[in-house]
Write a protein that binds this DNA or RNA. Structure first.
Lengths: 196, 196
DNA sequence: GTCTATAGGTGGATAGAC
DNA sequence: GTCTATCCACCTATAGAC
């Protein structure tokens, strides 16, 4: 249960963020949210219209947090390999999965435009950001000119999301670390001068 | 509802495979399984001890099917890039996700050794298989010698799993296709002689 | 083997008192 | 704003008849 000093609506959103991360949308019940937030039924339905409304608020916040975090890793400047590397190897907890990406596997999230929107926008932004960095690397001659920036950006975003799957399947973070190292190794090999 | 000529236990397993793929473990109820299989409660609990038992049988079958399918793509012979390429660009339905990988995001699957085992074994096998192909490519001089086979294999497996996430987030298969093309492009760039 | 009946618990939400 | 009471459908499983 959260600090009573925190606003009730805020505690409900925070609790929902956590439960969506841990259990997904279909696996998260209003009752569980209320218990974790230390709020009653009445409070929840006073502040939100229902589970989809509350989940949408939680997902928008998680998406914004993730984007800010990723932007912090990507905006470091330096070479394309350095920027992508900073993003790929940043500190993570692979066994928890991605708090946004995991929701893309949820049938009720994908079936609802409102619930899917934050997930869609997050990955559209991330792929675009990574593609831009690769395009810059190609433009400066750091990366081979035959590298397609959009395809490469999508592959880099996918490696992280897929790394979570491998780690959770194994019950061990090792496959995640291997996957991101492997992606970085491939990107280095695609440097115009691979000795760099 | 399935053909009555099919064995009842078999229909139950097949229906469970489909529902696990569509809705995951927490999102799949015995009632929904029974309805799809055209079987009653009594039949289900006669043939299986309960939902976890039936789900485990369905997951073992899905894992075996996926492995056989992947092996068919990977065993084509030829260069490492050709073998990996055949696996990466094989016909898929990205919006449906991976019938095995999706279960790695399910909290009750990862919490149970018996349910997680087929998922764990599938990806351990797949990563090992891809790593072996990369190692062969390095050994024959097709791929650059500084490529780590295990890391690269994990990255390739992750791209496919992550591609599903991107496609479902977008509501469009395009990001999946981009990701696998991007991965193949990077692997080609890591060829010892990139003109190949 | 398959059916119906039954069971306690939960899911998601509404109503109205305070 | 928050609480309790109430609602009906569904979840997962057991019991026992056929």
């Amino acid at each position: 249960m959260y600090d009573r000093a925190m606003d009730t609506a805020d505690r409900l959103v925070t609790s929902t963020q956590e439960l969506l991360w841990e259990r997904g949308y279909v696996g998260t019940s209003p009752k569980a949210i209320q218990e974790r937030a230390g709020a009653g039924q009445g409070s929840m339905y006073h502040h939100f219209r229902g589970k989809p409304d509350l989940a949408a608020a939680a997902m928008r916040r998680s998406a914004a947090e993730l984007r800010a975090q990723a932007e912090g890793q990507l905006a470091g400047g330096g070479t394309a390999v350095a920027s992508v590397g900073a993003y790929l190897v940043r500190e993570r907890e692979p066994l928890r999965g991605c708090r946004v990406g995991r929701l893309a596997m949820d049938p009720e999230v994908v079936a609802s435009d409102e619930l899917r929107a934050p997930v869609r926008d997050t990955f559209a932004w991330l792929c675009g950001r990574l593609s831009g960095i690769v395009a810059d690397g190609v433009a400066t001659g750091e990366l081979r000119p035959d590298l397609d920036p959009q395809d490469t950006g999508a592959a880099l975003a996918a490696v992280v999301q897929g790394g979570y799957v491998l780690a959770r399947a194994a019950g061990d973070r090792e496959p995640f670390d291997r996957a991101v190292r492997g992606a970085l190794g491939l990107l280095r090999a695609a440097a115009a001068d691979p000795s760099s």
